[in-house]
Amino acid sequence: MRRKQGTLIPIETSILEAALDLRRRGTDSAYGFLIAREIRERAEARLLTAYGTLYKALERLEKTHFLESFWEDPQVAANEGRPRRRYYRVTLTGETALAKHHADQAPIPNLRPERGSA
């Protein structure tokens, strides 16, 4: 089933929220594993997000311009003796989409006056 353009599914919401939380704590760009760990901690889950689910969602978010990515300098990774990381950063479009998503999810306030009130 095709979903409406600009709407977010739960894994995408989780990724954007995790990346924004990390940014608030001083990590402007985050790599896949860091985002997965943040999601796990926020959800108080035992498992990290599955590889396929996580990286497919990251790619989708990048295609919709909610995220942007860049590869780190291979020399930095080599100096630390690990594979190079791909960093993701939430864009303004992504922040707006997440804010809109939260607004859409918020319960509609009851505007009918209560009985007995003037």
Binding site: L47, L48, A50, Y51, G52, T53, L54, Y55, K56
Partner: peptide
């Protein structure tokens, strides 16, 4: 993590 992500790997 591998098993839970299998359907997404294949659809990707």
């Amino acid at each position: 993590r591998w098993l839970l992500g299998l359907p997404d790997d294949l659809s990707w």
